[in-house]
């Protein structure tokens, strides 16, 4: 079942935005960079008070906000954390973000939280479970969620459903939207010998409400290499090309530059956003669907 998105104070425009990191708080407040919107990790604002919340209050007037969660652990077989949901709902009600998103992954089991996005087997059991969790969370939060495709480093023997089909089916059954991370598609495709372009082409335009772009690193071993979704580098050339491809098909979408580690100065981040914006302008003419 679906819920219409709560009409938020500022919905996210189909422009490029940046992730707001604590290290950049002062620079963002001082310089108010010309980006379309800001995205934050929801859990970083779970404290009772202090600088993070104060900064968010200051900036919300100037930028539409998007909340990106990493710890709700929708894919886990542990019960959803009541405390986590409660705090998230409080934050949503207070800040009225234009978008709220989470991951096709799990981050906890047996009461232990692992601070890494862990992979799901793509089975009917996992699909049914994940859909019910999305529905549960959307009902509680009173919001439609966007679910992000993961970066994966392994696949399970028992997986039967291709990942893109799994994600699309989650969206159809739960009414959620899709946050399409182009870097994750590229990384996963390389790690498993799949076709990134075909994956991207398969996602129905109407389901995609946000795009993420990020950097990755390459780890080489004797028996092969693997790409790691480190969010610690500029967006790679191949990922920019794939982004151009998806924007040509979909039209404009809110696009986030996601850089979480080895942070550059703010203007480098803004430079990446500017590049995304140019692609949106140049290629994003497809009619909205």
């Amino acid at each position: 079942m679906t819920r219409s998105s709560a009409q938020s104070a500022q919905s996210i425009p189909a422009n490029a935005g940046i992730g707001l990191r604590a290290e950049h708080y002062q620079d963002v407040m001082d310089t108010r960079p010309a980006v379309g919107w800001l995205e934050v990790h929801s859990e970083n604002y779970f404290g009772a008070g202090g600088r993070p919340l104060r900064v968010l209050e200051r900036l919300r007037g100037d930028y539409p906000l998007s909340f990106h969660g990493v710890g709700l652990s929708l894919g886990s077989t542990d019960p959803l954390s009541a405390e986590h949901l409660r705090r998230l709902r409080e934050l949503i009600n207070r800040f009225e973000p234009g978008l709220v998103s989470e991951h096709l992954a799990w981050t906890s089991a047996g009461g232990i939280h692992l601070n890494d996005l862990l992979p799901l087997p793509y089975t009917e059991e996992a699909l049914t479970h994940f859909v019910s969790r999305v529905v549960q969370a959307q009902d509680y939060l009173g919001r439609r969620l966007l679910i992000e495709n993961p970066s994966t480093y392994l696949t399970f023997v028992e997986s039967r459903i291709p990942e893109h089909e799994f994600l699309i089916e989650v969206a159809h059954r739960s009414g959620c939207g899709i946050l399409l991370d182009v870097n994750n598609v590229f990384v996963s495709a390389r790690n498993h010998g799949l076709d990134a372009a075909a994956y991207l082409d398969s996602i129905p335009a109407g389901l995609v409400e946000e795009i993420h772009l990020a950097g990755h690193v390459r780890n080489r071993f004797e028996d092969g290499e693997i790409l790691i979704d480190s969010h610690s580098r500029p967006v790679a050339a191949e990922v920019w090309r794939l982004y151009g491809r998806i924007v040509t098909r979909l039209g404009r979408r809110p696009t986030l530059i996601e850089w979480d580690a080895d942070l550059p100065p703010l203007d480098v981040l803004v430079g990446e956003a500017d590049r995304a914006e140019r692609i949106l302008v140049e290629h994003g003419h497809a009619l909205a669907s």
């Binding site: 692992l114 601070n115 890494d116 862990l118 087997p121 480093y153 392994l154 696949t155 399970f156 023997v157 028992e158 997986s159 498993h192 010998g193 780890n219 071993f221 028996d223 092969g224 290499e225 693997i226 790691i228």
Partner: peptide, 29 residues
């Protein structure tokens, strides 16, 4: 590891990525 598809890089190597992520981020915290 028996549940992980053995294609290209060995399952142990693939699993190790996650272990490094978890331990690395907890150490950073």
């Amino acid at each position: 590891a028996a549940a992980v598809r053995p294609a290209g890089l060995a399952p142990e190597r693939r699993l190790q990525i996650h272990r490094n992520n978890v331990l690395g981020s907890l150490r950073q915290a």
